[in-house]
Design a protein around this nucleic acid. Structure first.
Length: 426
RNA sequence: GGAGGGAUGGGAGAGCGGUUAAAUCCAUCAGACUGUAAAUCUGACGCCCGAUGGGCUACGCAGGUUCGAAUCCUGCUCCCUCCA
């Protein structure tokens, strides 16, 4: 491998990087010319990938493009333990078939970013399947409890007298041993993984291997702009989100996190990222414009350029122009639909609250009534307003008013900003 | 083996006999505003009912005391901490 282009090198070692330990060693190995074994682990109990993962995957891709090889570790053993998270939910054992199925789901998403040609997947059971109690004891013998208690998460919990499960202590050891098993050259992870990655490095050294480089990346905040992106936190943008969802979720990002997203998830030049950051800070440009650009960029990447443009156009139409969306699911009304009263020419007469529930626009009648009261429901192109009803009297009685609402067929019923349905006669 | 602490609505966390469908915060939803599904402000946030009201469920589980219990008692189940 020839000398690396300095600009490329900068991109690899600076952009979207938290820390490389030790960096000099990493640079040296890059220039040695031998393909490096890049290690990346994956938890087969959670096969859904979101943009938080993508930050790391992009980095892997950059290195693959230089000819290095990715070894993907399917953590079928560590998944049973659960990475220390503070609120360790009890993991259930996954059977082999389930693991394989999840692994496939995972790969499908994974290869949208990473190069399949330069990826090899291995299962932890290849080596842990042969482990004996003796091997486990041997593995634990390299570390002390004190070392582990220094890990931030453990230290906090210990200080607060909160539980720390023994299996959690085992987790870093298993993950670390993976590095030994595959003789990893570089392991990647978010900054929260630092401890685990370092255990791998240390373990390799104790086993007489060349210790891996530890490569950490910043944690991507979720759509709430505060907590890390995570499925259980409900603040994630999934790789497999539809274009509309993906774009919409980008538009819901708080402004202060936009520049970071550009930095970690796109290839636009550093200088431009900086401009965006400035523009937002000084309010010189409407941040919405940047979010649109980011949205288009991401949708283009995970879907297509057409989808990106379409998502943007749709957003502008529905949320800026407040017009009706193009792609509205049909809701077929029949005589047996809950809330149905009768057909009347081109209209259907319904009890609106019940109708909203059966159309899937509200989860309960109470909620439906709430929406109506809050002026969130639109029928026949008009807001349903309980204060100007055709019953005329009893303004407090929403139910009375809406109990016989005329809804024009083939028109859209809207509840809130995002929920729509087109009413069709069955 | 011993001593203690705890289980409350999506999450965190008050309440410790009635005025509590249960403070507060977060999340969520809606409205206003904004050429943003951002920020901010306002409001809503168990379910059901022919409904400015009414009913039914709900504070780990099962009983009990009481006119009345998330709140007191008993027994379970589960969780945690500390000392051996």
């Amino acid at each position: 491998m020839a000398k690396l282009d300095p600009e490329l090198l900068h991109r690899i070692t600076r952009r979207g990087v938290a820390e490389i330990i030790p960096e000099a060693e990493f640079l040296k190995r890059l220039e040695e010319g031998t393909p490096l074994k890049l290690k990346m682990g994956f938890d087969p109990s959670r096969p859904d990938l979101h943009l938080g993962h993508v930050v790391g995957l992009r980095k892997l891709r950059q290195l693959q493009d230089l000819g290095h090889e990715l070894i993907l570790i399917v953590g079928d053993w560590t998944a049973q333990i659960g990475d220390p998270s503070g609120q360790s939910d009890t993991r259930t054992m996954l059977d082999a078939a389930q693991v394989r199925e999840n692994a496939e789901t995972y790969m499908r998403q994974f290869f949208r970013v990473v190069d399949p040609e330069k990826t090899r997947a291995v299962y932890q059971s290849e080596w842990f399947g042969k482990f004996t109690l003796a091997s486990v004891i041997e593995l634990t013998s390299h570390f002390t409890v004190n070392q582990f208690l220094h890990r931030e998460d453990f230290a906090n919990r210990y200080a607060e007298q909160r539980p720390i499960a023994i299996t959690e202590l085992l987790y870093p050891l298993l993950q670390g041993y993976d590095s030994v098993a595959i003789e990893a050259d570089v392991e990647f992870g978010g900054t929260d993984q630092l401890f685990n990655l370092m255990v791998g490095r240390e373990l390799q050294e104790k086993k007489g291997q060349r210790p891996q480089i530890v490569f950490t990346m910043p944690i991507l905040p979720g759509t709430d702009g505060v907590r890390r992106m995570g499925k259980s936190l409900g603040n994630y943008i999934a790789i497999e989100d539809t274009p509309t969802d993906m774009f919409g979720k980008v538009m819901s990002l708080p402004d202060n996190v936009i520049a970071l997203y550009f930095e970690l998830l796109t290839d636009i030049p550093d200088a431009e990222v900086e401009e965006i950051r400035q523009a937002i800070e000084t309010h010189s440009t409407n941040p919405m414009e940047f979010k649109k650009r980011l949205g288009v960029e991401l949708v283009t990447w995970f879907h297509s350029a057409e989808d990106g443009e379409a998502a943007r156009a749709e957003f502008e139409r529905v949320f800026q122009q407040r017009e009706q969306p193009t792609d509205v699911p049909d809701f077929v009304v029949t005589e047996v639909t809950e809330g149905f009263s009768r057909f009347e020419g081109n209209y259907v007469v319904v009890d609106l609250a019940k109708f909203l529930v059966s159309a899937g626009l509200a989860s309960s009648r109470s909620e439906a009534q709430r929406l109506i009261k809050q002026n969130a429901v639109e029928v026949n192109g008009q807001k349903v307003s309980p204060s100007a009803g055709d019953t005329g009297e009893s303004l407090g009685s929403v139910a009375t008013f809406v109990s016989s609402t005329r809804v024009e067929l083939d028109t859209i019923v809207r509840a809130g900003r995002r929920r729509f349905v087109r009413v069709v006669r069955g």
